[in-house]
């Protein structure tokens, strides 16, 4: 029973939103390699959506391109989610390890990523009057991913429905705290860097004169 290869696990989980993750947990399926691939795919999906969509659906991209916001929206948010969820659910008697949280959450993102690529493709062959297809794809993808993500968290920690809801709300709060601290640290380090740099220039100046 359920002797699936890794690609088969992906398919099973995505197309069985309610028991897929339970099966995955039971059989200890899933691998971090796929998580990495999925996050990279998410990163490119976000870029594609902003820059390669048809002009009739999306505004022209800025002439300046910065990769940082896209790293932020894919990698950083994902890690903040995993970290926040792990921190919260460890306190709330969750059974998931950090590795499993990362794997399950990333598998849950697949419908959204696929949806974005489909949107990018559709934006080149649809006109505005047919925009309902464009938005339908979007809503289907989003709802599917939310459903998967919810069940992923529920399965990985073996929670009840209400506890999962509470855990997810707390996770989002934890993410905000993490990101806030990250920004704080960044600005702090920048100040420290500037301090040492000015020290360095000062010393150089003294040495020369």
């Amino acid at each position: 029973m359920m002797d699936l290869t890794q690609p088969q696990w992906v398919k099973h989980v995505v197309f069985h939103p309610f028991e897929g993750f339970e099966d995955l947990r039971w059989k200890k399926g899933g691998t971090l390699k796929y998580t990495a691939v999925i996050i990279v795919a998410l990163f490119f999906a976000l870029i594609a959506f902003d820059r390669w969509c048809g002009f009739q659906f999306r505004p022209l991209p800025d002439a300046m391109f910065s990769v940082v916001p896209y790293i932020m929206k894919s990698v950083v948010y994902f890690f903040a989610w995993v970290l926040g969820n792990w921190a919260i659910c460890t306190l709330l008697d969750g059974e998931g390890t950090m590795k499993n949280i990362a794997i399950y959450s990333s598998y849950a993102l697949i419908p959204y990523i696929v949806e974005v690529y489909i949107q990018v493709f559709l934006s080149h062959i649809l006109v505005r009057a047919e925009g309902v297809f464009f938005s339908t794809v979007y809503y289907v993808g989003i709802i599917w991913t939310v459903l998967l993500l919810f069940n992923a968290i529920k399965a990985v920690h073996q929670y009840s429905f209400t506890k999962t809801v509470v855990a997810i709300i707390l996770t989002i709060a934890a993410m905000l705290v993490i990101l806030f601290l990250a920004v704080l640290f960044l600005s702090l380090f920048q100040k420290v860097y500037v301090f040492f740099y000015s020290l360095y220039t000062e010393i150089l100046y003294r040495l020369r004169v």
Binding site: G54, F55, Q56, P59, L60, I125, V127, R128, A129
Partner: peptide, 22 residues
Amino acid sequence: SMEYAKKADASARYNRAFERYR
């Protein structure tokens, strides 16, 4: 027409031209 609509940042016009082009 699409090309120049894009340069003018006029997406409604682009959409119209694209529909006919398609």
